[in-house]
Design a binder for these strands. Structure first.
Lengths: 359, 359
DNA sequence: CTGAAAGCGCTAACAA
DNA sequence: TTGTTAGCGCTTTCAG
């Protein structure tokens, strides 16, 4: 049972393959009537284009993906980009072409880069909308011209983007709470250190954390505005004033000053600290027991998945999920060395382990 | 800067494209001398075959993967197969063909199925060696005839298989130990319930668990031989005799009888239980707090990864890692609903979350 | 608006 | 042993 091609459709419709091509691709130079007739036949026969043949014919990859993500902060967006690249490297020999237009940092120059990509001609666009409001018109325009937009890491929920690949902030906060609750005596005092409550992601994490902590435990919230010095000072002061604090949840990637404050107060290993994400400088704090666990947002996996969703949609017509929530990983001493972020410092035997992508 | 093709090589070598094809593919009907000359040129020019053209020409997918995995136990091998299928579905439209020859259960009839696959003509083979000793000669033969063999879930370390995709048993055991240690008062008594210490995987998990528990805590080991009744009776008896047991690690997927025993003794939520893997019937025990956490081996991700490694190697020549250790997931109440195993019971809003693959 | 025909890079069947 | 040639299924250009 052979698959059907343009030739067969042409015969059935009593036209030439050229006309079928015009109908299938919405090209001009064909009456609406014949187009509908051909489309109907193609539909009925379950026509599936042969991608290999198409690639060969057009002389370029049959699917082109544009990518616009920030270069900084390296800790976080580095792995995100690596994930995207890893996935596209596999795919490109199979006929997928990727175009990069990185921005310097989150939110800078996004719109311009994005427009460049659209003008270069792409079938889908992967991007981190740092300034969702500003980007929404561009996103909507892209979607209207048939370019599927997939947000990654941060979302632009007001736009008409096709999909968003993110870790679920509520789950992160709730996990931190569950780990602390189970670990500390009931009614222990805990605190959460966050960046800015104005940032959606930070607010949701903190909120979920508070909800997850048993009602008897008081929760102090420290807003450090992503500033190193401020974070250190505030946490140091907090730990001095409130000697009964037993647990700490750092909901932002900016955990180093917090850890320094904990150590400076001589509380390393005495109070349970849960951090966010993972980078090599954190390794030492795991070893010394300063960090009990980290809730890892898996930027690498996010990159891989975004790329896969895009290609899978274009090639196979798989519907894009409105949003795709990743499971955060829980990093502890026992599994630390299996994370790619620790590859450099890892022992040689475990260094070969290279778990990446999803689930 | 256009990529070079058989045509160009033919010209440079002063031969015809047909001859180049013969040289490139080790076909017969060509002198060793001209073959070497052509190969040298191809190498020097960095020749990369156009997969699309090849697929079009041969009329079938240019890469064929054979898969031989068990149907039972559904709980575990179901997701494994789904992972393999999910990945191949994406790839097949890009020119990857997958052949299935499932066995009824782990170890049954593997060799026969495998030989069938090899005879059908494949480029790589994905299988779960239930009986590694018996399968080793077949694996070696496959590798010798140029078929890359990738073990998944279980390994055949004595064979010459190219790669093995597994969760790291030591990490599973150590994680369980770390979670229990952090959670229980020092010197608490704990026990591990396992299948058979003769099984490599169970032994390694138990051993790692014991090592991870602080030296002051006594560790009792219960061997239940994967038998439901035996597991229930032994655990029930243990909990009766030793009222000071505070933590339990179930290192096998056979956790239901253990949980029943815990509940029967009225200890649900009183002692901390850590289980292995995940299936829908466990959901209730999470809700009631009987299970504190589960160390999940992610069969779905294993399937996806095995398939990706295979295709990536054949298509892009990416070297296969001797072994690929997956990070187990830690399942807790907070993230339970994000697991695909819980999709049926999950609330509609979270049901769309579909985190899968790797890292 | 539509049809005819020429490739895209590779393989395979047939000639030499 | 080697060269020649006819496609694979699709797009695209050029005629009609």
């Amino acid at each position: 049972m052979k698959r059907i091609g343009v030739r067969e459709i042409a015969n059935l419709a009593g036209v030439s393959p050229g006309t079928v091509d015009r109908a299938l691709h919405g090209r001009k130079g064909i009456t609406e009537e014949t187009r509908q007739r051909i489309l109907a036949i193609a539909e009925r026969m379950g026509y599936q284009p042969d991608l290999a043949a198409r690639a060969l014919s057009v002389g370029r990859a049959p699917v082109r993906i544009g990518v616009c993500i920030p270069r900084e902060i390296r800790h976080y967006f580095g792995p995100l980009q690596e994930g995207i690249e890893a996935e596209s490297r596999r795919l490109e020999r199979l006929g997928v072409q990727v175009q990069y237009r990185p921005t310097e940092r989150l939110g800078s120059d996004e719109a311009a880069r994005t427009v460049e990509l659209l003008e270069a001609g792409i079938d889908a666009l992967i991007l981190t909308p740092g300034d969702p409001a500003a980007l929404t018109p561009v996103i909507n325009q892209a979607e209207e011209s048939g370019v599927r937009v997939i947000c990654v890491d941060t979302d632009a929920p007001e736009s008409r983007r096709s999909s968003a690949v993110c870790v679920n902030a509520e789950v992160c906060g709730a996990l931190a709470a569950e780990l602390l609750s189970a670990t500390l005596p009931p009614e222990s005092e805990v605190a959460v250190v966050t960046g800015m409550m104005a940032i959606e992601d930070h607010r949701r994490k903190s909120e979920a954390f508070r909800k997850g902590i048993s009602k008897d435990s008081p929760v102090t919230i420290v807003e450090a505005h992503e500033d190193e010095e401020e974070a250190f000072q505030k946490v140091f002061a907090l730990l001095s004033e409130r000697s009964d604090i037993a647990g700490l949840y750092v909901g932002t990637v900016n955990c180093l000053p917090v850890l320094r404050a904990v150590c400076a107060r001589g509380l390393s290993g005495k109070i349970r600290v849960i951090t966010t994400d993972l980078f090599d400088a954190m390794a030492g704090y795991f070893d010394r027991g300063t960090i009990f666990a980290s809730i890892h947002g898996r930027p690498f996996a996010q990159g891989e998945i975004a790329m896969r969703l895009a290609v899978d949609h274009i090639v196979n017509g798989t519907p894009l999920p409105r949003s795709y929530d990743l499971l955060p990983h829980i990093v502890m001493r026992s599994n630390l060395l299996l994370f790619r972020e620790m590859r450099k410092t890892a022992a040689p035997t475990l260094a070969q382990a290279l778990d990446t992508g999803e689930e």
